[in-house]
C-alpha cells in the first residue's frame, strides 16, 4: 500500500496521450507545412478574432443565463423533502444522458419553420422565424448545459447547515441579508464549479451554432472543425489559442474561489 508502483502505467500513459499530443499541437502551430519554424499560422488564426470574441460572448451569455435560472432552482430543491430532492435531481440528469446531438436536433425540430412552436404561435396570430439566429444558439447552449450549473450548486447548498440560516433569522436578519451574508458566500464553490462546467464546453463546442444559428453565428469550434482537415497548422494555432484562453479563464476562476475562501 505504500508503493508508488501502481501509478507507473498511468504516468507513462499520460506522457504518451496527454503530454506528447499537447507538444505536437504547439509544434504544429509554430511550423509550416514543411516543418520549418513559422508564425504564419498565428497570423491566419488572428483573422478569426471576431469569431473568438463571438464564441466567448455566446459562452458568457449562456453561462449567465444558466446561473440566473439555476441558483434559485438549486435553493428550492434543497428545501424539498429528501425523496422529492432525489427525484428532481434524477429528472435533471436523464436528459444529460441522451446523446448531445439528439438534444440539439430536438430543438431544431421544435423551432423549425412549420415546427410545433411556429404552428402554435401562428394560431395565435404571431408569425416569425425562431431558428437560424443568435437567440436560438444561446437557447441551445442553455438547454445543453443547464444541468451542469444546477448540480454543483445544489451539491454545495445541500451541505449548508440549515441551522445557520435559522440562526441568522433569530438574530434578526431579513431575507436579503441572509442571502447576501450566509447563503451566497457559502455557495460560492458550487457557483464557481458551475460556471466552469458551463463556460468551458459552451465556448469550445461545435455544431450547436451550425444547427441552430444563422450564417453569421459561427463559433470557434466550427472553425477548428472546418480548417483542421485541410490546414493542420492553422487549426493547431487556433486550438492552442483556445486552450490558453480557457486556462486563463480557469486560473481567474480559481483566484475568485481562493479569495472567497480566505474572506
Amino acid at each position: 500500500m505504500k508503493s508508488r508502483k501502481p501509478s507507473i502505467p498511468y504516468i507513462i500513459w499520460m506522457v504518451i496521450f496527454t503530454m506528447i499530443p499537447i507538444v505536437m499541437i504547439g509544434y504544429t502551430a509554430f511550423t509550416d507545412k514543411n516543418g520549418n519554424f513559422s508564425l504564419v499560422s498565428f497570423s491566419k488564426a488572428f483573422q478569426y478574432t471576431d469569431v473568438f470574441l463571438k464564441s466567448l460572448w455566446i459562452a458568457l451569455l449562456s453561462t449567465a443565463i444558466c446561473l440566473f435560472i439555476s441558483y434559485p432552482f438549486a435553493y428550492m430543491i434543497t428545501r424539498m423533502k429528501a425523496s422529492s430532492q432525489n427525484t428532481v435531481i434524477m429528472l435533471m440528469m436523464i436528459p444529460m444522458w441522451m446523446n448531445f446531438l439528439l438534444r440539439i436536433y430536438a430543438w431544431v425540430t421544435l423551432l423549425q419553420n412549420n415546427g410545433p412552436i411556429d404552428m402554435a404561435l401562428s394560431l395565435l396570430g404571431i408569425n416569425g422565424t425562431y431558428i437560424g439566429n443568435f437567440s436560438a444558439v444561446v437557447l441551445g447552449m442553455v438547454y445543453e448545459y443547464l444541468p451542469f450549473m444546477v448540480l454543483p450548486i445544489y451539491t454545495v447548498m445541500s451541505k449548508i447547515d440549515p441551522g445557520l440560516i435559522e440562526a441568522a433569522q433569530d438574530l434578526g436578519s431579513n431575507n436579503y441579508s441572509i442571502f447576501k451574508n450566509v447563503l451566497l458566500p457559502l455557495s460560492v464553490p458550487g457557483i464557481i464549479s458551475g460556471i466552469t462546467m458551463v463556460f468551458v464546453p459552451s465556448a469550445s463546442t461545435f455544431l450547436v451554432a451550425q444547427y441552430l444559428g444563422g450564417p453569421n453565428d459561427i463559433m470557434i469550434g466550427d472553425i477548428i472543425d472546418k480548417i483542421f482537415w485541410t490546414d493542420q497548422n492553422t487549426g493547431s494555432a487556433i486550438s492552442l489559442i483556445l486552450m490558453i484562453l480557457i486556462f486563463i479563464f480557469l486560473i481567474i476562476m480559481n483566484l475568485f474561489g481562493d479569495e472567497e475562501a480566505i474572506a
Binding site: I22, M24, I25, T205, I224, S239, L242, M243
Partner: peptide, 14 residues
C-alpha cells in the same frame, strides 16, 4: 479541463 475539441484534435495529430 481542456476543451473536448482540443483533446480530439491533439489526439488526432498523435
Amino acid at each position: 479541463i481542456s476543451p473536448d475539441i482540443v483533446t480530439g484534435v491533439s489526439l488526432m495529430l498523435l
